[in-house]
Design a protein around this nucleic acid. Structure first.
Lengths: 204, 204
DNA sequence: TATTTAAAAGAACAAACGTTCATTTAATTA
DNA sequence: TAATTAAATGAACGTTTGTTCTTTTAAATA
């Protein structure tokens, strides 16, 4: 009926984000009500507003946190002394291994852009295109080094990104393939798709 | 205040589907109300129920119509006398040229599976996997013919599908590239990605 | 220790939701 | 032509929605 013993605002806020993530990934932002979130957290509806100004702010936090962490994580990957093909290899492995365990956040960041008010939309979209530039720049680099033979760097970047993004839609934890094996397959296909010289033959 | 002169049930039903398609693609199923659809059609809310039993039935019609038409259209593509590489070429072109002008339906069929009741979900999912089998079978065919050198036919199929599905997310009508040029690029990248012998080099 | 702030509860708000219903009139069928 | 069916209206239904407000108590601060 009032503040609860041991309650901590920061912890509650995190639990709200956590439960919202799961619910929104499963049902979609519009289909999730504040009452559903409150029940999942184990708290009264009104209490949610002690931590977030409104429903949209929860979504914004989920999306911007995810995108920012994704970009941050990519920056920590060591690319020193690698040529463009090796870097693209690292990128494919990074994308798959980083995103598969975060399927809910990935799905939301991809799907719920349209649920954002215009200014929030712009903010998130900027982070998203930053990630696209990573791939495009890598491919352009390989093109200039003469390692990749492609028709169009932008199209190639979007094709590669589409390919790896798709993994999240079909991967099953108890499936036939380990994450590491999937990485291997995608690296091979990606490098061949950009016309990497040494990747003409698959080691089948 | 009553039936309107010249009104025709079949035409109204089609207009309802048409406007629903646009609204749901833009805002998502849960975010679109029956009143919004009614207003877009230019009809009273209650009238919608003369044509569809409920809101979900509209979504089901949109999704199953789209998937059925997609599969039907693919069947009409002439593949006679072609080897697996040429068939995969045709598939990539078919997918891109068929789906780009139907961006709304494509997006909905991909995104709103979760908004369906379980039995409807199963029905649509079956159509979806039928489409996946098309690609997988083509790739297996090329593998057996010795035309494609890949590690795993299933992974290759999902990679190829992800790549082409992604086109819908970045294509802009007033962009730099025509649909036909995009097809060319994607065919080249796809064939290289499955290790097609003659596609080692891009004609840049 | 006294005061203020933080974090919860739970009732209440108006607005919007999907759907149903009675009613009216046009089109179709008998 | 008479009876029936189809297609529209607009009001009404009980819920549910996001959000606000008052109240209570724990934690933090002065």
């Amino acid at each position: 009926m009032a503040r609860i013993k041991g309650s901590d605002g920061r912890k509650t806020a995190l639990r709200i984000l956590d439960e919202s993530l799961k619910l929104i990934a499963k049902l979609g932002y519009a289909a999730v009500s504040m009452r559903m979130i409150a029940e999942a957290v184990g708290v009264n509806v009104g209490s949610l507003y002690n931590h977030f100004a409104n429903k949209q702010q929860i979504l914004v936090r989920l999306m911007s946190d995810h995108m920012a962490q994704l970009l941050e994580a990519w920056k920590t990957v060591d690319l020193e002394g690698l040529d463009a093909a090796e870097k693209l290899d690292r990128f494919v492995r990074f994308h798959i291994s980083y995103n598969l365990p975060r399927a809910d956040a990935v799905f939301i960041s991809f799907m719920e852009l349209r649920s954002l008010a215009p200014d929030n939309h712009t903010k998130i979209e900027k982070l998203r295109s930053e990630y696209e530039y990573v791939v495009r720049d890598l491919i352009k680099e390989g093109q200039q080094e003469g390692l990749f033979k492609i028709e169009d760097a932008h199209v190639a970047a979007m094709s590669v990104l589409g390919s790896v993004i798709g993994v999240n839609t079909w991967y099953r934890e108890k499936g036939r393939l380990t994450i590491s094996k999937i990485e291997d397959h995608y690296v091979a296909m990606t490098l061949r798709s950009v016309g990497h010289a040494k990747s003409g033959e698959a080691h089948v």
